[in-house]
């Protein structure tokens, strides 16, 4: 593929990805334990579409996002960007990949350097990737316009912008190198409600205009429904269910997906009163020693002996929906 221009949409396919972290250990302790943050996860995102990845803290969704964006390297499995295998590239090829896959962080306060003007922040990736040489200033103005900011404010510093505007700068920085894929890790969860909608609309509009492929990571299932074409649900490092967005929200098959959806408050008192909430028992077990078999079984109301022995595989149920559960069954949650 030529130079990965932004006009060309690319698909992203993740197969059997594993990402582990060592925890504990150190000088005096003999053995560190290994946490499998991402455990044999597969997903694919059609070119120009959005895959929403949901789950609660510690489920591995951010680890997956960081591995896909090659901010870190997975232990095994493959990541294909268009026709290229990118999971193990390094050096110069890694730099080329970083240009094609960009990352937007959650916290627009922490992810911008307070001592750099917006111009310097946006010009840096251009210099690193030797793009728009001699035209940097024009490109910076263009980027600011693209994200709905005033190009006349290019010489201001992050503290002079509001949270929503800072997140727009973060998005402009990702756009600077004309990526094909953007990994968005909780891009609106730090923003006030009245500001969120603007950033969501911007992401939607940019995708339509530039053909971007999004991996959208969020814990807010309302936001994910609005933006995604396909959604995957993770629990303790595993993908437990995925499917086309309306299918998954209207016909969830995995007990965890059902519990998660039923726990989200809906801004509608009548709907809230009529809902049957599934309140899960207990807490998420430690990822250091996850339960045998199905990792959700310790909190599942359907669990049997089989669930402790056999790990359920992700099984295709038709209509693009797949579920990792021994006893999948539909249940309406709102």
């Amino acid at each position: 593929m030529a130079e990965g221009s932004a006009d060309v949409s690319s698909s992203l396919t993740v197969d059997h990805l594993v990402k582990e972290y060592r925890v504990g250990g150190g000088l005096l302790r003999r053995r560190a334990s290994v946490v499998q943050a991402v455990s044999d996860v597969s997903l694919s995102i059609e070119a120009g579409k959005t895959f929403g990845l949901v789950g609660e803290s510690g489920c591995g969704k951010s680890s997956l996002g960081r591995t896909v964006a090659r901010l870190q390297t997975g232990e095994s499995g493959s990541i294909r960007l268009g026709g290229d295998e990118i999971s193990r590239v390094s050096g110069r090829s890694l730099r080329a990949i970083r240009r094609r896959v960009q990352f937007v962080f959650q916290d627009p306060y922490a992810s911008l350097n307070p001592r750099k003007s917006v111009r310097a922040t946006l010009a840096e990736p251009l210099a690193i990737h030797r793009l728009h040489r001699g035209q940097e200033s024009r490109r910076v103005s263009e980027l600011l316009e693209q994200v709905g900011l005033n190009p006349a404010h290019a010489d201001r510093y992050p503290h002079e912008f509001s949270g929503g505007q800072r997140q727009r700068i973060g998005i402009a920085r990702a756009l600077a190198v004309e990526p094909e894929v953007i990994v968005l890790d909780e891009p609106v969860s730090a923003l006030d409600v009245s500001i969120q909608a603007g950033v969501l609309n911007l992401l939607d509009e940019l995708q339509g205009r530039l053909g971007l492929t999004y991996l959208f990571i969020a814990h807010d299932l309302s936001v994910v429904r609005h933006l995604s074409d396909r959604v995957g649900v993770m629990y303790l490092g595993r993908m437990v269910e995925q499917g086309p967005v309306d299918r998954l929200y209207e016909h969830p098959m995995h007990p965890y997906t059902q519990a998660l959806l039923s726990a989200i408050p809906v801004p509608d008192p009548k709907v809230e009163r009529a809902r049957q909430r599934i309140v899960l028992r207990g807490d998420v077990p430690s990822p250091v020693s996850p339960p045998s078999g199905c990792r959700f079984r310790t909190r599942c109301w359907k669990a049997t002996e089989k669930c402790a022995i056999e790990t359920p595989e992700l099984v295709d149920l038709g209509e693009g929906q797949s579920v990792a559960c021994h006893y999948p069954a539909e249940r309406t949650v709102f």
Binding site: V193, A197, N201, S222, V223, D246
Partner: peptide, 19 residues
């Protein structure tokens, strides 16, 4: 505020959110 909230219990369609 109410109009700008994405809803989990509704299909989103192609309309942008109220801003």
């Amino acid at each position: 505020l109410l109009a700008s909230l994405p809803r989990m219990d509704r299909r989103s369609g192609d309309e942008p959110l109220y801003q």
